[in-house]
């Protein structure tokens, strides 16, 4: 057990606990951006810096193990100013097209900018203007929106062991891209979707065909049918705030019919048949 304090609040945590985790245990919120609970810290963004008494450095809370007797300070004017400057710098390298972005309202950068009350741009914008990659039917890669958190690369290389994505170049012209700069469709990408589901911004997002579906549904010359995958009946419940695991099969069928689908097919029927065979 390690005993330390965070903003004067005593914490008792197991050895190896990071400052960030320890702070959460005592309800102290340290803002983060690149950090993701599924992944080892990449320590890239520099937002989660804190002070430790006796040192004039600032440490990253996400990756620094708390040590016995540390007195940690998570907020003071200097810390907040540094965090804010770093955020402003990141924003100066990020396009302002939230309204048209695939990640509008589910963007971690947008949330952070809102939390810091950013209202103006302190630094001139510079956007590299690297073209989007929409070569697959699964994702769109928009390197200009990348904040270099490194999550997608960590997942693709270390967890999935696919090695489709990597960082290329260096300095401010560094970018994440399919290895060797090829298009995603030519890369070893297996379209598992882990990168996009961990991307904090609109740099990798799933190709969205909602608008096309609406158009088809409203076209009287079309006879629209729908087929759902087995997992959806449960997963969709969470999106509507149901307790995890709630079975939504009936509600799902009703809603799909109300949307205008003439017939609803369920993949699980075929799955059941296969199992019975």
């Amino acid at each position: 057990m390690i005993i330390a304090t965070i903003n004067g609040i005593p914490v008792h945590v197991a050895e190896g606990t990071t400052i960030l985790e320890a702070a959460r245990q005592v309800q102290v919120k340290i803002p983060t951006l690149c950090h993701h609970p599924d992944l080892p810290p990449t320590a890239a963004c520099g937002i989660c810096i804190v002070k430790v008494q006796g040192s004039n450095k600032m440490l990253r809370a996400c990756c620094t193990p708390i040590e016995e007797g540390m007195n940690i300070l998570t907020h003071d004017p200097e810390i907040v100013e540094v965090r804010r400057t770093v955020l402003e710098l990141i924003l100066s390298n990020h396009p302002n097209d939230c309204l048209k972005c695939g990640r509008n309202q589910s963007c971690e950068l947008q949330n952070l900018a809102a939390a810091f009350g950013i209202r103006e741009e302190l630094f001139p914008k510079f956007i590299s203007g690297i073209p989007k990659d929409d070569s697959t039917n699964a994702f769109v890669i928009d390197p200009d929106k990348c904040i270099h958190c490194g999550r997608c690369i960590e997942i693709c290389q270390e967890l999935q062991q696919v090695w489709a994505l990597s960082f290329l170049g260096r300095g401010f012209s560094s970018r994440f891209a399919p290895a060797a700069g090829m298009r995603l469709v030519e890369s070893p990408c297996v379209e598992c979707g882990q990168c996009s589901s961990h991307c904090p911004t609109g740099a990798i997002f799933e190709l969205d065909e909602t608008v096309k579906v609406w158009q088809k549904l409203q076209d009287p010359d079309n006879y629209c049918v729908v087929q759902i995958a087995p997992s959806v009946r449960v997963a969709i419940g969470e999106a509507f705030g149901m307790p995890p695991g709630t079975n939504m099969t009936g509600k799902l069928y009703t809603v799909l019919r109300r949307l205008g689908f003439k017939a609803v097919f369920d993949t699980s029927f075929a799955a059941d048949v296969t199992v019975m065979e």
Binding site: T42, A43, A44, C45, G46, T85, V86, L89, I90, S92, N93, F123, P124, F126, I147, H148, G150, F167, G169, R170, G171, F172, S173, S174
Partner: peptide, 21 residues
């Protein structure tokens, strides 16, 4: 330093570039 920055962390990658400008 801007040319030699690896580009991993935001303060160095973007801060250096903005300062240079």
């Amino acid at each position: 330093c801007v040319d030699e920055s690896c580009g991993k962390c935001a303060p160095c990658r973007i801060g250096g570039y903005q300062m240079l400008n």
